[in-house]
């Protein structure tokens, strides 16, 4: 007996509640967009500058003790948080880790090494058995460049993908695919704003991978839509779309499932350093799979597509790159 995530033959009407699902998507996008300027993103030192020190002690040292030591130093804004490792119980790690973050003051282009030295000296004096696992420090000059290059990367990726899809399909497909991408990116940013998870360089990588993944998913379904449009010339678009999504449903869920399994393993066991990254990926895979059906396809349905491939369409001339390669 084979493991099947969906029955062999499904006839689900994905557009039955199209208004509601699309409405929810729009609502979530609006909420996310509203969160960004109000609640903001919790930018890490990569984008804001500043320093981050990870400490480890064999015995538990309360956060208050750290604060007591650090408040005597002239650091400007700083924070101390405990690192909780969900895999600790599994791996048997008994050490206690703490993350100290010091903000960069007055847009100093260089790193503020004297603060790091002061923190390390003061903590070592108070807690002799302390070890410093990592120290990272980014000056305002580099963080400014990283913000620019990060957002440039996302914009470039979306543009390049839009171009590729437009080349391979028709413009309606490209628009649907890109709307789904923007939906995924905005919702991911909204999630990071809502939960105030640290937003650093690796999250940009995660978002770009989400872009790639979500598109992967969309393209597979669109590929089938293109094929079925040629096959069933007279069927209503809604039925063709539904049939295409149903036919590829098993594959969509299988791939999402294997990717999620791998990501969850990484989330639980991969350590603190890449937890934010894997969280973004998990969220992105779920949202990306959803948006393929409930955003990209819905937009395609609303926009409509030229059906008859044999007759030239004066209005859409020049957009038919796709006909020859299916």
């Amino acid at each position: 007996m084979r493991l099947k995530l969906v029955p062999a033959d499904t006839h689900i009407d994905f557009f039955r509640f199209a208004k509601a699902t699309f409405g929810i998507s729009i609502l979530l996008v609006i909420i996310s967009l509203a969160l960004l300027p109000t609640r903001g993103l919790n930018f890490g030192i990569d984008f804001k500058g500043g320093s981050m020190i990870t400490t480890e002690t064999p015995a538990e040292v309360p956060v208050a003790d750290y604060r007591a030591v650090l408040s005597g130093l002239e650091l400007g804004d700083y924070s101390v948080t405990e690192i909780v490792d969900p895999a600790a119980a599994l791996t048997g790690a008994a050490a206690h880790s703490m993350l100290i973050r010091i903000d960069q003051s007055d847009g100093d282009p260089a790193i503020q090494n004297d603060k790091i030295v002061a923190v390390k000296d003061a903590l070592t004096a108070e807690i002799p058995e302390i070890t410093f696992l990592s120290t990272e420090s980014v000056g305002a000059k580099v963080s400014g460049e990283l913000v620019k290059s990060g957002f440039l990367a996302i914009a470039l990726a979306v543009a390049a993908i839009l171009f590729y899809v437009w080349l391979r399909f028709e413009w309606q497909f490209a628009l649907g695919a890109v709307a789904a991408l923007v939906h995924d990116v905005v919702l991911t940013l909204g999630m990071f704003s809502l939960l105030q998870i640290q937003f650093n360089l690796s999250i940009i990588a995660a978002i770009l991978t989400i872009v790639g993944y979500s598109l992967n998913d969309t393209v597979v379904i669109f590929d089938r839509v293109r094929e079925n449009l040629i096959k069933y010339k007279s069927r209503p678009l809604r039925e063709v779309l539904n049939q295409s999504i149903n036919e590829t449903l098993s594959r969509t869920l299988m791939t999402s499932a294997t990717t999620l399994v791998a990501l969850i393993a990484l989330y639980v066991l991969g350590g603190e350093v890449i937890r934010g990254f894997t969280f973004a990926m998990i969220w992105g895979v779920i949202v990306g799979t959803y948006s393929t059906v409930f955003v990209a396809s819905v937009i395609l349905l609303r926009l409509g597509v030229k059906r008859d491939w044999s007759k030239p369409d004066p209005a859409a001339a020049g957009t038919q790159f796709a006909g020859g390669d299916s």
């Binding site: 290059s149 990367a153 899809v165 360089l201 940009i204 770009l208 597979v220 590929d223 390669d325």
Partner: peptide
Amino acid sequence: SAIIDANVTTLIAAVILFAVGSGPV
């Protein structure tokens, strides 16, 4: 065709990440 399209798009994202990104990314 689905395999090629799906992978080319992810490859585009990877290439851009490599070109624009820095360090660990």
